[in-house]
């Protein structure tokens, strides 16, 4: 009996710890005062100034643009890579998968500076293009790792069975293999998209003047101290994430049934 209450208390404390900072941001996003120490009345002003903040709006645009392009490219390359890897000789596959896991295991900062070194050496001006290239680089490994298991779960000889029945390899890929690995592709694309949206470190080293994503914008603003617009931004982002996850959760539940 005591154990049960202890568990509840612990759960409440943990969730409190997780959500307190977010709650504080949300509350102070409506605070009519620059200070976070005292309450100066309710206001929507920070939301207004958030939408008028040119830096944040531009960063939002770049964040979404980069995420869409990078996740599309990495999903395409990663899916075909998984297809190739699945039919590869075990040793070669193992070597490639080890290289594949380098960007996952390596600290972001190492991946960031190594790509920056490459772009500078190739004389590519740091900016939108380099940021997209960098994002594709760290997304591909995750796509490969989410698609490859789908190939491995696929009943063996699927491709051969289709070809045996007269399907050309391309037809077999579209009609037989693609439907089997589709969940993995979707997962991979979602991971790539979220990673890209969330990335700070690698983008930080691989972007140039005028091009920044939300993370970089927040970082440069936060370094200069507390900005109530950021509170407003956090609240909006939290609500977006919450709604998205609730939808996702509903959907997976329906699929499970």
């Amino acid at each position: 009996m005591v154990g049960k209450w202890l568990k509840r208390l612990y759960t409440i404390l943990m969730f409190g710890f997780l959500y307190a900072p977010i709650a504080v941001l949300a509350i102070f996003s409506f605070n009519d005062s620059k200070s976070t120490a005292k309450w100066g009345g309710f206001t929507f002003d920070w939301y207004k100034s958030l939408f008028q903040n040119d830096l944040i709006m531009r960063s939002l645009y770049y964040t979404i643009l980069v995420a869409i392009i990078a996740s599309a490219i990495s999903t395409l390359i990663g899916t075909f890579a998984a297809f190739g890897l699945y039919y590869m000789k075990p040793l070669k596959q193992k070597v490639l998968l080890n290289v594949n896991s380098l960007p996952i295991l390596n600290p972001d900062i190492v991946t960031g500076i190594s790509l920056m070194t490459l772009f500078v050496a190739l004389n590519i001006k740091l900016g939108l293009i380099t940021m997209i290239l960098a994002h594709v680089t760290f997304c591909i490994p995750y796509v490969v790792l989410s698609v490859l298991p789908k190939f491995k779960q696929m009943p063996s000889e699927m491709l051969e069975a289709a070809m045996d029945l007269g399907a050309t390899p391309w037809y077999a890929f579209r009609k037989v293999i693609y439907p089997e690995i589709k969940p993995g592709i979707i997962t991979g694309a979602l991971i790539a998209f979220t990673l890209s949206i969330d990335d700070f470190v690698i983008s930080f080293f691989n972007t140039g003047s005028g091009v920044s994503n939300l993370s970089i914008a927040i970082y440069s603003m936060a370094r200069r101290g507390i900005k109530p617009e950021i509170n407003a931004l956090s609240t909006l982002m939290f609500i977006t994430v919450l709604i998205l996850l609730l939808i996702l959760n509903k959907r997976t539940k329906i699929e499970e049934i």
Binding site: S156, E157, E160, D164, L165, A167, T168
Partner: peptide, 14 residues
């Protein structure tokens, strides 16, 4: 294989 008039029944059915 897709151009042969031969069909296969696979061990694990496939």
């Amino acid at each position: 294989p897709y151009m042969r008039q031969i069909n296969t029944v696979f061990q694990k059915y496939a």
